[in-house]
Nucleic acid binder design. Sequence first.
DNA 1: CTGAAAGCGCTTACAG
DNA 2: CTGAAAGCGCTTACAG
Lengths: 353, 353
Amino acid sequence: MSKKKLSINDIANELQVAKSTVSFILNGKAKEKRISDELTARVLEFVKEKGYQPNQLAQSLSTGKTKMICLMVEKISDYFFSHIAFHLEALAYKNGYKIIYCSTENDAEKTKQMITLLRARYVDGYIITPSVGIESEIIAMMNDNLPVVLFDRYLPDIFTDYVGLDNFKGTYDAVTFLAKNDAKKIALITLNSEQTQMAERRAGYLAALKEYHYKPAILKIPFESDSETITGYCVQFLKENPDIDSVIFATNYLALSGIKAVNELGLSIPDQMSIIAFDDHDVFNIYNPSISAVSQPLDEMAKQLFKLLLDKLENKVRLKDLTKVIIQPELILRGSTRQGNHKMEADRRLTRR
Amino acid sequence: MSKKKLSINDIANELQVAKSTVSFILNGKAKEKRISDELTARVLEFVKEKGYQPNQLAQSLSTGKTKMICLMVEKISDYFFSHIAFHLEALAYKNGYKIIYCSTENDAEKTKQMITLLRARYVDGYIITPSVGIESEIIAMMNDNLPVVLFDRYLPDIFTDYVGLDNFKGTYDAVTFLAKNDAKKIALITLNSEQTQMAERRAGYLAALKEYHYKPAILKIPFESDSETITGYCVQFLKENPDIDSVIFATNYLALSGIKAVNELGLSIPDQMSIIAFDDHDVFNIYNPSISAVSQPLDEMAKQLFKLLLDKLENKVRLKDLTKVIIQPELILRGSTRQGNHKMEADRRLTRR
DNA sequence: CTGAAAGCGCTTACAG
DNA sequence: CTGAAAGCGCTTACAG
C-alpha cells in the first residue's frame, strides 16, 4: 500500500551513479564539483519526476541543522503573541524554516523544562519572551553558540539580542497628548508586574507627568486577575479618585475590562473620561466609541525579530555581536480621546520616528 | 567553550559497557533484557549526573518517529485557532509531543506545499482545518499510513477522522431561543463561503425558522472583507429590512463589525435588536451590553482532537478505523438578547447534551 | 545478562 | 569529473 519512500541510494542505483554525486547535485554543488551538465540534468529530471524529497531528519543529523525555530511566548493565544506568530510564520517559511511554538505562562520552571526538551531536538534558534529566573539557561544556550533573541521584555541582568518596543515613549507620548488636550488628572492602570516592558511603561508615564507637574495616580492590578476582578478594581479606584479625567491602560486586556468599569460608573467617554490603551487590538476599532491606542507595529516587530535571528543562523553576524532593536510605537487616535480644537479624523495617526 | 554534547557512545565508553546496553536501559528495557539492577542503577545515575539528553534527531532517524505534530489552521492569529493551539499545546507536551504550526489562509496551493514540506520532516501526525482542493493530498497521507484529523470543517467528498462542532444545533438553538422570546424576524449574517461549518450553520438556521413558519433573511458577506466593509454591508442590509428584530452572526468577527452597524443605525440592543454571535469571544463578556453567543467549548474540542490523534499515534486504534466526533455547542445568554418574562441572570447557560 | 554489527538516510572529506 | 567510505547518534535484531 504505502510504497517505500525513495532514498538517495535508490536514485543512485537506478541512475547508476554514486550517491555522493546525487547529493552534490541536489545541494547545488554540481558546478563546484565539476559534474557534467548532462548528468546534472538527468539527475534533476529523475528527482523531479519521482517527486523525491530528501529526508530532512537524516539531513539534519548529518549537518547538525534542523531548519527549525522555537517560538517561546508567554501564551500563544494572547492577541499580541498570536499575531507575532502569524507574521513570523510567513518569514520563516519563506526562508525554509518551520516554527515550533510553546507557551511559558510565565513559569520559569516550565520554561526551563521546555528549553531542555527543545535543545534535545537541536532546534537551530530561539525567539523567547523570557520569564524572570531563566537567566542561566539563556546564558548556557549562548555559550553553546545557539542563537537566542529575546523580545517584548528582556532580562536586565544579562546582555542578549533583543527586539522590543520603545515602551517609555509609548506612555510618554500618550500622557503628553492627553495633557495637551486638557487632561488634568491622568491615571495609569497597570499590572503588578516587574517585567521590563511594564516598568518602562510606568517610567514613561511618570516622566511625562513630571513635565506637566501633574501628580501620578497608579493602580497596580494583580497578575492573572480575571476580567471581572479587573473591572472591580477599576471601579473602586475610579470612585476613590473622582478627579481622574483620563486613563492609560498598560495592556489591551486591562483596557477592555477597565472600559467596562468606566461604563458601570456612568462616565461618558471621552467627555468625562479619556482612554488610551497600550497595545492595539482589532476590537478597539469597532468599539463605540472606538478606543485610542499606543500600537506596537506587529509586522515590523516580527520582521526585525526574524532578521536578527536569521543573520545569526546564516552567520552573517557573529554570535558574539549582540543587538538591541527598539521599535517605535504609534499613537493611534480614535474616539476615546478628546482632541481640543482639532477636528477629529478617523484613525488619525501620530507617528514619531 | 561549548563542550561537545555527550553521546550514548561516550557513556558506554566511560562506563565500560556496550552502547546497546545503555540504550536498553535508557529506554526502560532493562528488565526485559535482563540487565542487572546494579548496572541499571549505575548507568541511570551517571546519565542523571551528566544531564545527558539523547539526541532526538538520531532517535527519530532510527525509529521513524519524530514525536512532532503539525497543526495546520486557517490562520494562527484568529481567536478560535490560537486558543485551540494553546489547549493542544498543553496536551501535546504532556505526552512528549511538540507542535509545528502553520497557517493555510485557505489557500489550497499553499496548503499542499506545506504538507510536502512537513512530510519531508516526518512529522508523526496532522491536525488540519482543510481548505477545499486538498482532497488528494489528504488521501495520499492516509494511504501512507499517516494519522490525519480534520477539524472545524471537513471535506464532503472524503471520509476521514474529524472533530467539529454541531453547527446545525448551534444556530437551531439560537433561532429557537429568539423565537420563544418574541422575535418575529430573525436574520442570519454569514460569510459567502461554502465551507461545511458555514453550510451547517445556515441549515440549522433555516430548519428552525421553518418550524416557526418564519421567512429567512440572509446576508452573505464576501470572504475576507475588512471590518469597515462588513459594517457597511450590515448597515445597508438592516436598512433594507427594517422589520428585522434579531440577528445571528455566523462568526464572532462578523458580530463585532455587525454590532457597530446596529449602533450606527441607532438601534438599541436588545430592545430593538437582539444579537447572538456564533463562536464566543473574550470581549463579548465585556461589551456593553454583553453579547450572547453560541460557544464552541475550546478545551473540549482540543481534548477530543488530541485524543483521536494520539490513539492513532499509539496504535490504540487502527488507522483504517475513522471517527467523527461532534461537539455540542453551548448557548450562552448575556445582555444582547431579550428574555421574555424570565429574570435575566448573568452568563446563564443553556446546555443541551 | 552483554557485545559486535547493521541500519536509518543523509553529507563530506578523501582518493583517484 | 566520480566513487568508496566514514560519520552523524541513535535502535535493535542477532549471537553468544
